[in-house]
Amino acid sequence: MKLSLLAALAMGLVAAPAVAADSVGTGILKSQCISCHAIVKPDNASLARLWERKGPDLYYAGSKFNRPWLEKWLQNPVRIRPAGEFYTKHIKGSDKEDVVDESTMAPHVKLPKADAEAAAEALMALTGPTDLLSKGAFKGEKVSMSMGAMFFNKLRGCAACHQAKPGTGGSSGPELYTAGERLQPDYIYSYIKNPQAIDPHIWMPTLNLAEPDLQRLTGYILQLSASEGK
């Protein structure tokens, strides 16, 4: 009896600092997010694991998202991937082309303001591996929207999978008309350059784009938010 009491006390003493160290936001991530999202880098980066996961990885969320967008989106989640994640589980055949099977799509958890702010704070602390992004790679130069659109739509084929305007373009990738508000510039640059290095086995190809293309497409996507998404 004394031993079990001691053991319980010891557990309490050990557990107490750990709980205290967890912020409110981390608690929210652990209670509401980890059933679908990885907040710690998974050991297993196989294609099978990509099929098993229910949502995008968040262990590098702090290197990916802009905090104001996170706070806003968590309070009012709007679908980012027209065909869900992962698209192949949410489509069905039709008389014409395949279509999104809405019956398979579940709404994202919606958080009250205070929880959204706390969760966003915790997510921004998850920066992932130090070599995940090419930091400072995007030079921030303005891009001609007509030139950007030509590369995005015709010359590099991005529109096959992504929407630069609501309702126009592909559905298997995330929409990009809010990407500038949503994503950090160096994340966009690094993901276009080598999606597989950030998200192993993802269904976006690595196109071996030259530096001017990477700058141009990153700039175009960032500017889309200002011109198309509002």
Partner: peptide, 27 residues
């Protein structure tokens, strides 16, 4: 089969007939 269902289906379709979910707006 798994690679096809991961990478190809988005454009070539679950029926393998070129009518993938992305094909609607493709030139």
């Amino acid at each position: 089969l798994r690679n096809y269902n991961t990478y190809c289906v988005q454009c070539h379709g679950i029926n393998r007939n070129g009518r993938g979910v992305n094909s609607r707006d493709m030139s």
